[in-house]
Design a binder for these strands. Structure first.
Lengths: 223, 223
DNA sequence: CCGAAATTTACCGTATACGGTATCCGATAA
DNA sequence: TTATCGGATACCGTATACGGTAAATTTCGG
């Protein structure tokens, strides 16, 4: 393998590719992960792969196996619960900040996202639903103006995406979440920070309960 | 350089060592960081250093310079404010969780931490004060039972440690924080989750204001 | 002297080489 | 047949080699 041209973000490419495979389930929970194999598949050397795996391990997407090497982290209800507990706090503070910072253009953008969300729900495309959900929340994170929140939350959302994908194979009743989203957005655009925060936390709470119920159910079936 | 014995966590060692140098200020904000130099200093090859730097960059301790290479991230009031905004949320949810989960033994441990904190304050040792502060909050994170919170918060505390070290060279009046800590602990041990959360958030808020005021002041003087 | 072109240097990211250890497997002895 | 030992294999982490590019520096025509 020769690589004459320099494309200096092989690590990022590897990271993104592997993360995506994990989140979409192409790399299944529990599956063993081997550097050589990934390196070949991505047409890079083991080095960038190694570095990407190191990151993914730190971020909890990969676990060490007792034996040699890594495996894709299993999906655990307890971890998911912790994830949502954190998300509740994060979403709350983000919505609070967003309400203090919203502008006219953000109003248009926000309404468009909600519009899109409702449209996608009626289309029945699960992956698109998840994407729209993420897009809305990311919008709030960015509107909050707090880079750290955006980063932290984005990381967590990859985990969430994975769980959602696992659970919502045949689309749950994700319809109602867009009413809640709209409620959050309205509060934000009215500049009512406290209400935005409360609604956000409540939304995360509800989402968590629904998801975890579904998750434990599907895990029980699997056994 | 030969390394006949295998000690398979050179990356972690490098990461820890570099992070510590950044937090203590031995590697000063703005200072250029060169792989070869660090590798030599730590007596490892460039490879583990590269990987450690990659992590530290992602975590915001290092910035890319327009030119080649990395530099130690400057200390920015805006970033610090964002940090504390996040911490406020994190501490809140941690205290809430801790209050639902406290035990008899945790009561003893908590009171001991407070005892120690007060003793350290009167000793006048700034570094020890920071350490005691961190220890108390970490105690709460761990008591919350949410691994994710503990991890996320620990990461942020490295940033906080750095700022504190920068600002509190000659020790601020850190005395009052231990009254607030005690208030939080009491609420936790009474199992009053809402009060614990509120007190925690309030504490973070106050700490942020004090620190950022001090920070902007010291930055102005520096100019 | 001064500025532009050319060359050297510094330093990075990726690929490959190397050495070590845990697992697997087949052969031999109980 | 089964347990144990020895060798082969798989796979990882670290070290080193390599190639490229931006900055620094020198050289040379004005």
């Amino acid at each position: 393998m020769q690589r004459l041209t320099v494309q200096p973000q092989l690590v990022d490419r590897a990271y993104g590719a592997i993360l995506d495979e994990i989140c979409t389930g192409r790399l299944a929970p529990g599956q063993r992960v081997v550097q050589d194999e990934l390196a070949e598949r991505l047409a890079v050397s083991r080095q960038p792969v190694l570095q990407a795996l190191l990151l993914l391990k730190r971020q909890g997407f990969l676990h060490e196996t007792g034996r040699r090497g890594l495996m894709v982290a299993p999906i655990e209800p307890v971890f998911t619960a912790h994830l949502y507990e954190l998300r509740r706090a994060l979403d709350g503070v983000a919505a609070h900040g967003a309400a203090l910072r919203h502008t006219a253009s953000s109003a248009t953008a926000g309404r468009a996202l909600i519009e899109r969300g409702r449209r996608v729900v009626s289309s029945g495309d699960t992956a698109a639903m998840i994407a729209a959900d993420i897009a809305f929340h990311r919008f709030i994170y960015e509107l909050s103006g707090n880079k750290l929140i955006a980063e932290t939350a984005t990381l967590h959302w990859h985990h969430i995406r994975r769980v959602m994908g696992q659970v919502l194979r045949e689309a749950g009743r994700l319809g109602t979440i867009w009413d809640e989203h709209e409620g959050i957005l309205d509060a934000v655009l009215r500049g009512n920070a406290d209400e935005a925060e409360a609604r956000s936390r409540h939304h995360a709470e509800r989402a968590a309960q629904a998801l975890i119920a579904e998750l434990t159910l599907s895990l029980e079936q699997a056994v």
